[in-house]
């Protein structure tokens, strides 16, 4: 199969600045989204995800300008998530130069929003972001539920069922984050990734827990992910995207080199 598995660095942006300390040694301004996007593009990133974590609604306009700036200088696909609640939010991001938007809590609050957005803008730009936590006891068949509010609030919704439903409503891609693994560096929740990837016909991006390059390859091989997302292993200069691709290629995974 000739289609490459994608490697996607994820950047958290607060009020126009990249946070969670990106630490490239030779970068002039480590908080500048454009500088960092350019750097990842040079390293061979296949796409970029920007997550707007700006707390106040008024400051969200800043993100529109960030997207405009990045999209006029970096020519790879951009996904923007965080605070996407209305078709108007989507339109502004797409007009600014985003290719896709990530919808998370707004989909949980009102699933029909995903259907309306897909009908208006096309499934190709609607990514539904799912934050899932394992709720089954050890020894039980594994089961995961959707959590909101950064993993604090349970919804009682089964994650695999939710992914199926969101695709039925028009999601063109699923961004799947394991809240159990996020920030642990223990690797993806491979069983979760595989369960969702095999349940839906659209591409699945695995997220949460990457601590080394083999974890990325595991996500593709064992998790059956179509793309893998990571933040800290790239941000802190531990590895480049190029190194990640070399590792995946060495394990026989097709990548864009």
């Amino acid at each position: 199969m000739a289609l490459a598995k994608r490697i996607i660095p994820c950047l958290d942006v607060d009020n126009g600045r990249v946070v969670k300390g990106v630490q490239f040694v030779d970068i002039r301004d480590a908080g500048d989204p454009v500088e960092i996007a350019k750097r990842y593009n040079q390293q061979g990133a296949d796409e970029l995800v920007f997550l707007d974590i700006t707390a106040s609604h008024e400051d969200r306009e800043t993100m529109v300008h960030v997207v405009e700036e990045v999209a006029s200088q970096v020519f790879i696909p951009l996904t923007v998530g965080g605070g996407i609640r209305t078709n108007d939010d989507i339109r502004r991001m797409l007009n600014a130069g985003a290719d896709k938007v990530g919808i998370n809590s707004a989909a949980v609050a009102r699933p029909e929003f995903v259907r309306e957005a897909a009908e208006r803008f096309g499934s190709q730009c609607i990514v539904v972001a799912i934050d899932a936590k394992r709720v089954s006891a050890d020894g039980e068949a594994p089961r995961w539920e959707i959590f909101t509010h950064g993993g604090r609030k349970a919804t009682g919704i089964d994650a695999v069922e939710w992914a199926r439903r969101m695709v039925e409503y028009g999601a063109g891609e699923i961004l799947l984050t394991s809240m159990d693994r996020d920030g642990t560096r223990d690797g993806f929740d491979l069983a979760l990734t595989r369960a969702v990837s095999e349940a839906v016909a659209v591409p699945v991006i695995a997220s949460g827990g990457v601590g080394n390059l083999d974890h990325l390859a595991d996500g593709v091989e064992q998790g059956k992910a179509d793309a893998v997302l990571a933040a800290s292993i790239f941000h802190f200069g531990q590895h480049t995207v190029g190194e990640a691709k070399q590792c995946m290629a060495a394990r026989g995974i097709e990548v864009r080199l």
Binding site: L3, R6, D46, E198, P203, R256
Partner: peptide, 14 residues
């Protein structure tokens, strides 16, 4: 061909 070929065809291809 379930699982093998996702639709949409999304990503970098030759």
């Amino acid at each position: 061909e379930p699982g093998e070929y996702k639709v949409p065809h999304m990503g970098w291809n030759r």
